[in-house]
Amino acid sequence: MNKPRIKLPDAAKAGDLIEIKTLISHVMETGQRKDPDGKVIPRNIINFFSASFAGDEVFKADLQAGISANPYLSFFMKVPGPGEFEFTWVEDGGNKVVERIKLNVT
């Protein structure tokens, strides 16, 4: 899994409703396809995503084979005050990518 891309507003105030956009490159192999020899290519997807802010849960997603390659996710948060986001992507087999970004609260 490569380094994810995350888009936050440049600045936000406490009480604002902000949109968070995330993207990570991943094949999201469904487990339905076959290789040229006719063997099934095993499933390999990111099956879980979570976002927390200042230690509190904001949003979680259970992803299944119906999500496109390079999964994009966007969601909202009502800014409780200053803090740092922690985003986690978990792949089949348990590999994880964790990314932390501070939100500029003015």
Partner: peptide, 22 residues
Amino acid sequence: QPGVATFRFSPLSGKASAASRM
């Protein structure tokens, strides 16, 4: 496989909305 995703919200969400690509 009909499953696409489950989006789970919290009191911090502010808005019950999510976007992705399927």
